[in-house]
Structure formats: C-alpha cells, structure tokens
Design a protein around this nucleic acid. Sequence first.
DNA 1: TATGAACATGTAAATAAATACATGTTTTTG
DNA 2: CAAAAACATGTATTTATTTACATGTTCATA
Lengths: 174, 174
Amino acid sequence: MAQKNRLQYIVLGLLNIESRTGYDLTKAFDSDIGEFWSANHSQIYPLLKKMEQENLISHHEVQVGTKLVKKSYDIMSDGKKIFNDWLEEPSEIDSSHDEFILKLYFIDDKKPELLEKMVAEQLSARSDKLEHLNQQMRDKFPDQDKRQTQYGHYCVLKHAISRETDYIEWLKTI
Amino acid sequence: MAQKNRLQYIVLGLLNIESRTGYDLTKAFDSDIGEFWSANHSQIYPLLKKMEQENLISHHEVQVGTKLVKKSYDIMSDGKKIFNDWLEEPSEIDSSHDEFILKLYFIDDKKPELLEKMVAEQLSARSDKLEHLNQQMRDKFPDQDKRQTQYGHYCVLKHAISRETDYIEWLKTI
DNA sequence: TATGAACATGTAAATAAATACATGTTTTTG
DNA sequence: CAAAAACATGTATTTATTTACATGTTCATA
C-alpha cells in the first residue's frame, strides 16, 4: 500500500494523549516513534489541515510572548472513533515500517484485553513467518557449501531469522 | 530522502549476479530481499526503461514458446561502476528500510576487505545508537512507576533496544 | 543586549511507491 | 483438453514522502 494513511493514526494517537502543535508532533518522530516510523513537518502541517476539515481534530490558539500564536490541535470524537477502530484492526507485517509497534505505543492500561488479543495475533503471525524463514534456510543453505559462495544471501537470511526470533522473544515479554 | 534511488542499486546488484527479466526482478522481492525492501512491478518496468536509456543496463530478447519474447536485462560497465561506488559508500541507518543489509546481500567473496570495513562501520554506528537508546531508557523510565503509566512507550523503547542489541550480535557473527 | 539555537508554520517541487487498469502467453494439473 | 496458476509486460492514477523554499518569533546565554 502507499501506507494506508498510517501517519493519520499516529497523529490521532498523539493528540489522544494530549493537545499538541504541529511542531510538537514533528518532534515526536525524533525520539520514540522515530524508531519505527518517520515523518517530516512538511507532511504533518498539510495533514493537520486536512484532518481538521474532516472534523477528526480541531485546534485552539495559544498566545506565546507578544506576537506568536501557536495552534494546538485536539482530537475530536470522530477522530477518536477512527483511531480506536484502527487499534482493533489486525496489523500488517511490513518488514519496513512496523504497524504493530505503533499501535502498542498508543495502547494504554485501560485496554488489557485488546493488548492481549493484539499480542497473541502478532505472535502467531510472527511465528508463521519465522517458520517460513527457517524453511527457506533449510532449502537454500542445507550445507556449508552454498553458505560460502552466496555469503551475502546467507547473512541476510540469517539476520531475518535472528530478527524474527528476537521479535518473538520480545513479544512474549509484553 | 525520498530514498535516494536505492531500488536502482538493487536492480543493478541483481543484474550483476545474472541477466534477469523485469518479472524475475519483481519476484526477488517476494523472498530474500523482500525481508528488507519492497517494490512492485509497476515500479520496476519503468525503472528498467530509464536505466537502459542511461546506459546502465541493456537487454537482449529471449524467445519463449511460439509467441512470447522475453526481455532479459544485463548490467553494463557504467552500471557496474555506480553499483560498486554505492557498495563503498557508508550506509544510512534508517529504521525502516535497511541499506546495510542490501549491500551485504550483494557482497561477494571477492571483497573481504570491503566487507570488513562495512561491518566495522555499521557496528560502530549501531553501538552509538544502542548507547543513545539506553540513555533514553534511563532518562524516561528510571523506575517501575512510569513503566506502568506509559506501558506502550516503555515496550516500544524496550523493543528498540532489543532490536539493536540483536543487530549488533548478528553483526559480530559476520 | 546581541546572537545563535530552538521554536513555530507554512508551501512548492520532485521523487518514490502503491493501487488499479490492461492485456496476453505458457505451463501445470486435474 | 479445459481451466487455473504462473509467467510476462506494460501504463495511469493516486498517494506518500523527501527536499527545498520561505518566513518569522522566542528563549537561553555569553
């Protein structure tokens, strides 16, 4: 997909925590969320405008100093609805951006049963994937021989397996 | 970046191994490379056309059955040059797509000193990143308290740390 | 109190990527 | 041998993302 509007969900999730400016939202991608998703301010400001037109969010103005008026955005009921719907949908395993992690970031302690369902679902999907990767390893690199002539391929597959294994171990700690 | 033309390097890397059709190239993203990068055939066919115009690749025709004529693409010297130059450049840590892994995939046994340099470089960058993540953990979640009220944030950071640790361990095995 | 860093908000242009549209051939298999 | 699956190659449209352009304010600090 051209990434099914996931940035919109991130914005909603962040505004669901607290009111923020476009600048605040942009900064969120420098730390936490930046580990799993990226966005520029030039993507965020137009998106905020669009989302406000669609009544998902609104803004109030905050006076700073003598001249500057910040726009602080707030989530509205329509926004809350589509955000919560997104949380309940299954997450795609995408190998680049990680949708599950995003949802996890926004899960709060009020939804333990949703968290449990999400983790179980992801655990199942990731286990299937690991199984598939192990099968590939058995098929493509059964002996030392090909591991040397196609060393790059072997390393990459080994890393994919290592990554999935680590992911699954981490899932089990949630 | 709008991903600095990395798809072009992947195509060059694959054609550097052997002559392939657009369909073959597309399929490569279903397995191995698909673990770390994605592309659709609608991206690949126009790119092949463009790269041929730029003399990076050429094609020869292969008759299949009675009617079908496949186009099989071959890398040319200009293509080889820019591919090898890319291999030598430092790889960005991007948190979504993984450029280092891509390069590793294409490294062959003829370049052990380049491999060594690449791994050392990546090890250094990843270690710095892990250090930074650990610092964040110490700053944001010093005690059990905040780990519970911001459980999602905590999990995500923990996963980033786990991921980097696993990455570094894997790097050491190369 | 100057000055640089960080805050703050936008738009424009270019590139990258996904989805949908379109069409036809070859191979496998029931 | 019919049908389905896989092979094969494109284009068009929409969406997503990056880089660059553009401008101004506030805050910390030397």
